[in-house]
Design a protein around this nucleic acid. Structure first.
Length: 505
RNA sequence: CGGGGUGUAGCUUAGCCUGGUAGAGCGCUACGUUCGGGACGUAGAGGCCGUCGGUUCGAAUCCGACCACCCCGACCA
C-alpha cells in the first residue's frame, strides 16, 4: 500500500525530517562527502538560476553592475575592522600552504607555508574595500554600485541543506557613496528589491525590519532584513541589507576629495541573499506530498505525461503531446515562454505522476487516447490538494495557461500570508508571551509559537533572557508599524519599542 | 568545543548479548502479465560487515586504539 502522503514523515510528525525528505524526493540536493557542504543537483540548481536571473535583472535595473573579487583574502585584511574580526574569525577556513608533497607513508602533506595565511572569504567587505580605496579618488568616482555572484565559506558547526551549509552560493552587493543620505537610500532600496522579489516571485511574504544591536552584521551601523515565517512557525532571515556607515571606509581607507577640496571617507553598504532562499521557498510552500514551486521561478511550468501503454495509439498520443508542447512554448507568460516538458520515460504512470508531484511542478497534464478523442487534456494543479484533476479542452488550456499559472502564484502568496497572519499575535504581558512559546508537550514539542509582537525596552538583558528561557530572539524592529510609545512587557520600562519576536533558523 | 549515540549492499536495516565466515525490504537489471493516482510474478547483479591491532583453531560478533558520521548544546546568511 502506498502511504497517504508522498512524503514521510509529514510536517506535523517531524518537521526537520520532512524538510530533508522533500529535498531528497524532489532531487534538489544532497549531502556531499565534504562535511557541511552540499551538492546542488539540477532541479535545485535550476531554481537557483531562476532566482539569479530575476535578481540580477533587478540589480541592473537599479543601476548596479557585476564584478568578481578573489576567493582568498589575506588574514590581515580581516583584522582591519574590529567588529568584523570578532564576528567572522571563529568560522573561517584558513589556507596556510601552497602545495602538497608526498610524505614518508605516501600520503600527501602540505608544503611551502605561505608567508601570510589566506582565509576563504566568509564575505568580501574587506577585500572589496581594499580595491575601492584604489578606485576612489574624487567624488566624481562615486557612487560605486557593484554586485558579485559568488560562493562563500563559513565553517558552521551544524548545517542543514540550503538553510545553513559551510559553503554557500550568494550575491553580495557592495556600494560606496559620497554622502550618508545616499548610502542610506541605497540600503533601503535594496531591502525593497529583496522584499519585492520574495513576495512577488517566491510568493513568500516578508516583514521588513531593522536588526537589534545583538543581531547586527559585524561592522555595520545598521542591518536591515526581511523576515519570513516558515510552516513550523519559525522565522527565517531571508535577506539582509547593511548600512556600514564609514566603518569599512575608514578601515580600508576609502577616501575621496569632495567638491570643496576636502578629504572625506566614503559611506558604504553591503547587501546579500543566498541559496538559503531555496530553503525558505521549500519551507513556505511545500506540503506533505513534496515541493510546491511558485510558477514564476519553476524550472518547468507544465509537465506533460503521455499515456502510452496501448501500442496502437502510442504514436498519435506522442504526436499530440508534442503539438501541445510546441503550442505552450509559443505562449509567453511573465516575460518568458512557458517551460513545458514531455515525460515519455518508460516508467509506470503512477510512479511518474508522483515523481512530478514531489518535484513541485505547477501544472501536470495527462494526455491519453480518451483526451485526444475529445481534443482535451487532463489537467492537475499542484497548489490544489490531490491535484484536482479535470478534463479541459486543449485550446482552452493553451489559451489560459498563463492565467492559471498566475492564479497559482497569487494563491501561494495569499495562502502563505494568511498562515503568517494567523500565527502572529500581539502580547501585552510576559506570561502570555511565555505561554505562546512553550510547547504543550515538552518531550516531543509540537509545532507551536509564531511571530510575537510586543514592546520591549530594547536592552541586551531582555534579549539574553528570552534566548535562554525560550530560544526566542528579536527578529526585527519592523520598518512599518513600529513605534517607541509602549511599556516593556518584561521590565515595565517606558518608551519601549515594538518588535517582532520568534524562534528562528 | 562539551554531552550522548551509531558505523553491515546505492538507501533503510536484521544478525552482535550467547564467536563457526551475512539475511531482509526498498532501489537496480532481464523477461512476462499489467498500466488514466505509488502493480505483481519469476530470475538475477550487488557486501574484504568503518580502519588498524589484540584474544581465539575460528571474529560482523569479544577487547583496545583510531577514524568518520548523526543527535542535543554553544556559534551562525
Amino acid at each position: 500500500m502506498a502511504p497517504k502522503t508522498a512524503i514521510t514523515p509529514t510536517r506535523a510528525e517531524d518537521y526537520p525530517e520532512w524538510y530533508q525528505q522533500v529535498i531528497r524526493n524532489a532531487d534538489m540536493a544532497e549531502n556531499s562527502p565534504v562535511r557541511g557542504c552540499m551538492v546542488i543537483k539540477p532541479w535545485g540548481y535550476t531554481l537557483w538560476e531562476n532566482i539569479q536571473r530575476v535578481l540580477d535583472k533587478k540589480f541592473k535595473d537599479t543601476g548596479h553592475v557585476n564584478a568578481y573579487f578573489p576567493l582568498f583574502i589575506p588574514v590581515s585584511f580581516l583584522e582591519k575592522e574590529a567588529q568584523h574580526v570578532e564576528g567572522f574569525a571563529k568560522e573561517c577556513a584558513v589556507v596556510t600552504h601552497s602545495r602538497l608533497q608526498a610524505g614518508p607513508d605516501g600520503k600527501l602533506v602540505p608544503a611551502s607555508p605561505l608567508e601570510e595565511p589566506l582565509i576563504v572569504r566568509p564575505t568580501s567587505e574587506t577585500i572589496i574595500g581594499e580595491m575601492y580605496a584604489k578606485w576612489v579618488q574624487s567624488y566624481r568616482d562615486l557612487p560605486i554600485l557593484v554586485n558579485q555572484w559568488a560562493n562563500v565559506v563559513r565553517w558552521e558547526m551544524r548545517t542543514r541543506l540550503f538553510l545553513r551549509t559551510a559553503e554557500f552560493l550568494w550575491q553580495e552587493g557592495h556600494t560606496a557613496h559620497a554622502t550618508q543620505e545616499e548610502a542610506w537610500e541605497e540600503t533601503r532600496k535594496m531591502l525593497d528589491v529583496y522584499a519585492d522579489f520574495a513576495e512577488n516571485w517566491m510568493a513568500m511574504p516578508v516583514i521588513k525590519g531593522e536588526k537589534t544591536e545583538g543581531e547586527r552584521f559585524p561592522g555595520a551601523v545598521s542591518t536591515l532584513c526581511i523576515e519570513s515565517m516558515m510552516q513550523d512557525k519559525k522565522a527565517l532571515q531571508a535577506g539582509t541589507s547593511h548600512f556600514l556607515g564609514q566603518n569599512f571606509a575608514k578601515s580600508s581607507n576609502i577616501q575621496f576629495l569632495d567638491a570643496n577640496g576636502e578629504q572625506q571617507f566614503a559611506w558604504t553598504t553591503s547587501w546579500g541573499v543566498s541559496t538559503r532562499l531555496v530553503g525558505g521557498l521549500i519551507m513556505t510552500h511545500a506540503d506533505d506530498d513534496g515541493l510546491v514551486l511558485p510558477p514564476r521561478l519553476a524550472p518547468t511550468h507544465v509537465v506533460i505525461l503521455p499515456v502510452l501503454h496501448k501500442e496502437e495509439t502510442r504514436a498519435q498520443v506522442m504526436e499530440y503531446c508534442q503539438k501541445l508542447r510546441a503550442q505552450l512554448k509559443d505562449t509567453i507568460w511573465d516575460g518568458r515562454p512557458i517551460e513545458a516538458e514531455i515525460d515519455a520515460r518508460d516508467v509506470r504512470g503512477g510512479e511518474k505522476l508522483w515523481g512530478w508531484v514531489k518535484k513541485g511542478v505547477p501544472l501536470i497534464v495527462e494526455v491519453g487516447p480518451r483526451d485526444m478523442a475529445s481534443d482535451a487534456v487532463f489537467l492537475g494543479r499542484r497548489d490544489v490538494p490531490g491535484l484536482g484533476k479535470k478534463p479541459v479542452a486543449r485550446a482552452e488550456f493553451v489559451a489560459n495557461v498563463g492565467s492559471i499559472l498566475q492564479e497559482i502564484q497569487d494563491n501561494l502568496l495569499a495562502r502563505a500570508k494568511a498562515y503568517r497572519d494567523e500565527n502572529t499575535k500581539t502580547f501585552a504581558n510576559k506570561e502570555d508571551f511565555y505561554a505562546f512559546f512553550t510547547p504543550k508537550n515538552a518531550n516531543n514539542p509540537e509545532i507551536h509559537g509564531g511571530f510575537a509582537v510586543a514592546y520591549y525596552d530594547g536592552s541586551r538583558e531582555v534579549e539574553e533572557q528570552l534566548k535562554n528561557d525560550l530560544k526566542v530572539t528579536v527578529r526585527c524592529i519592523p520598518l512599518e508599524g513600529s513605534d517607541r510609545n509602549g511599556t516593556c512587557i518584561f521590565t515595565g520600562k517606558p518608551n519601549a519599542v515594538k518588535a517582532i519576536f520568534a524562534k528562528s533558523y
